[in-house]
């Protein structure tokens, strides 16, 4: 479990360029769950990501992993990097080896594993992200953008971290690439039991895959909790420049229209954020408007 307690981070302290990126925040990342961190550009979410594995130490406050301060010593920070795997934004630019296989092996070999252990982990990680044996032997620079992204993610998964933190894992991918990567990651989470932290500005992605959501704005936490709890704060989210999931927007519009017509909207829950929820919310009304409601929805 990762715990942030009263953490602040200031860039360029004591210079004219001083900027507070994270302002006194506290939260917990619970084990075995998918936690989504949302916020628009400059809200401090990437800084939070880098503090999770001690790449940067907070200016004030503490970051605890399983109760221990990860910034207490250099060795502690170094060890944390293997326990909390961090996949950066556009991670494909970190690839450097001759073959995909060697590149994925970079992390595990830094852990000091023997050749067999490394091989096992590389194969495991490649399978999770869906890279074929043939791809493993090729140069990472010959691959497509989406494949490179998967190689980079595999490079971190191969270290088998307790917590996997991904900064915008789906940025710049086409819709199919997006759902493929996010789908594989949640599948990986289910099989391995690793906690997942998804950092994104896309409400859709976070809403669909997260168990818990932390919404950030201007270096502070705007609201947090289950997706339903967070999306019920739709006014605040909108004011801080975060777009709601499209389906939530549709439901809010429907509710508004109904209210204008004087229709009772108690049955419409405004915190609907997946198509599944929308279906369940709309089902009763279709049934009541027409005796054979079932023919409208399958």
């Amino acid at each position: 479990m990762i715990e942030f307690s009263d953490v602040s981070y200031v860039y360029g302290k004591h210079t004219p360029f001083e900027r507070v990126a994270v302002n006194n925040i506290s939260f917990k990342i619970e084990d075995g769950l998918v936690t989504g961190i949302i916020g628009h550009t400059g809200s401090g979410k990437s800084t939070v990501a880098q503090m999770m594995n001690a790449l940067i130490a907070p200016t004030s406050g503490k970051v605890l992993l399983n109760g221990a301060d990860i910034n207490s010593s250099r060795t502690e920070s170094y060890k944390t990097r293997f326990k909390v795997g961090l996949v950066f934004q556009y991670p494909e630019y970190q690839l450097f080896e001759e073959t995909v296989e060697k590149d994925i092996a970079y992390g595990p070999s830094n852990m000091g594993l023997d050749d067999n252990g490394i091989k096992e982990r590389v194969e495991m990680a490649a399978e999770f992200v869906g890279l074929s044996k043939q791809v493993l032997k090729s140069s990472p620079f010959e691959l497509s953008g989406g494949q490179k992204r998967r190689v980079a993610i595999a490079g971190v998964i191969a270290m088998q971290p307790e917590v996997l933190v991904l900064d915008e894992p789906a940025a710049g991918l086409d819709p199919r690439g997006r759902s493929e990567i996010l789908g594989r990651l949640t599948k990986y989470r289910k099989t391995s039991g690793t906690s997942l932290v998804l950092i994104s500005h896309s409400m859709e992605d976070v809403a669909e895959y997260s168990d818990r959501i932390i919404a950030m704005n201007d270096g502070r936490i705007l609201c947090s909790g289950t997706p339903a709890q967070v999306f019920s704060h739709h006014e605040e989210l909108k004011n801080s420049g975060l777009a709601l999931p499209q389906i939530t927007n549709i439901m809010l519009k429907v509710k508004e229209k109904c209210e204008k017509q004087g229709i009772n909207t108690d049955f419409l829950d405004s915190s609907v954020f997946t198509v599944e929820d929308a279906y369940n919310a709309l089902l009763p009304i279709l049934r009541t408007s027409d005796g054979k409601g079932d023919s409208y929805v399958k």
Binding site: N53, L55, F88, Q94, Y106, G107, N110, V156
Partner: peptide, 8 residues
């Protein structure tokens, strides 16, 4: 940073 995250 990215390579450090991979234990460099």
């Amino acid at each position: 940073c990215a390579q450090k995250a991979r234990g460099a």
